[in-house]
């Protein structure tokens, strides 16, 4: 609610600045120009949106699967943790701007390099909170499971995994935010469609408002995914209330 007000205020100030200051619309389009473009270019925006949405969707799914598997593997074995965790950190220092064009030369203009970039960027924010939550299980609950004779697997299945689920959701929400940037970045390295491609094309064509419209579509999509995850968490994990000060739809 407050966020919406703040957004409106920002948009209002922006509109005033561009109209009153008579800024050239190629340099900075007014919000009204962007909204007009959202409507006029809706078919173009939509067809490019579906491409980017697919890249993000598949990339997020891959990073979720890899992230959870890796978190469990690292949690279960100290040796793996010692061996792999430093590499995991190192993987995040790989400059994506450099890797993206490389991946394009390897895999072509298709979806593969985009999915790879999104997954590379997104699996880290999934692994870290999940791994830490798996290890942060209440010692009393561990004691309970061991007096009941639970095996390592049963401890994971009945206690560690459920208690790590809220953290997994935190990670997934973070991933959605960075995943959009990753998808656009991957597209700018080489693609024939997608919102990132559209942005890159629109600016030299002096269609700045269209580029902004593409950004708006992407933001709205990320926001929708974020809210969807929040709602899903509320439904699936009613026992783990979202922090009251946290973002809620």
């Amino acid at each position: 609610m407050l966020a919406a007000l703040l957004l409106l205020a920002g948009l209002g100030a922006w509109q005033l600045y561009t109209v009153a200051g008579s800024v050239d619309t190629f340099i900075l389009p007014a919000p009204s120009d962007v909204i007009a473009s959202l409507w006029d270019d809706r078919a173009l925006l939509w067809s490019n949106f579906t491409v980017t949405a697919r890249e993000m969707g598949v990339g997020l799914a891959v990073s979720l699967a890899l992230g959870v598997a890796l978190a469990v593997a690292l949690h279960e074995s100290r040796t793996t943790r010692r061996a792999v965790y430093p590499l995991l950190i190192a993987s995040q220092t790989i400059p994506v701007v450099l890797v993206a064009p490389l991946l394009v030369t390897w895999f072509g203009y298709g979806i593969t390099p985009k999915v790879a970039i999104v997954a590379l960027v997104c699996f880290f924010p999934i692994v870290v909170p999940t791994l830490s939550a798996l290890g942060a299980v209440d010692p009393g609950q561990r004691k309970l499971m061991s007096t009941l004779g639970a095996s390592r697997w049963q401890l994971l299945r009945h206690v560690e995994a459920p208690s790590a689920l809220p953290a997994l959701f935190v990670g997934a929400r973070l991933s959605v935010a960075v995943g959009a940037i990753a998808a656009v970045l991957a597209e700018t390295a080489g693609s024939e469609s997608g919102l990132g491609h559209l942005m890159l094309q629109s600016i030299p064509q002096l269609e700045t408002a269209r580029a902004f419209a593409a950004v708006a579509v992407l933001s709205l999509f990320s926001l929708a995914l974020y809210l969807g995850l929040t709602l899903a968490q509320r439904r699936l994990l009613p026992w783990a209330p979202l922090r009251p000060e946290g973002p809620t739809p």
Binding site: Q141, M145, L148, G149, A150, S151, Q154, H158, V159, P162, S163, L237, W239, A240
Partner: peptide, 18 residues
């Protein structure tokens, strides 16, 4: 366990172990 109902919490003793 906060994520289980009363019945499943009690039944946990039968679901884990050897």
């Amino acid at each position: 366990l906060p994520w289980l109902g009363a019945l499943d919490n009690a039944a946990l003793a039968l679901r884990v172990g050897g």
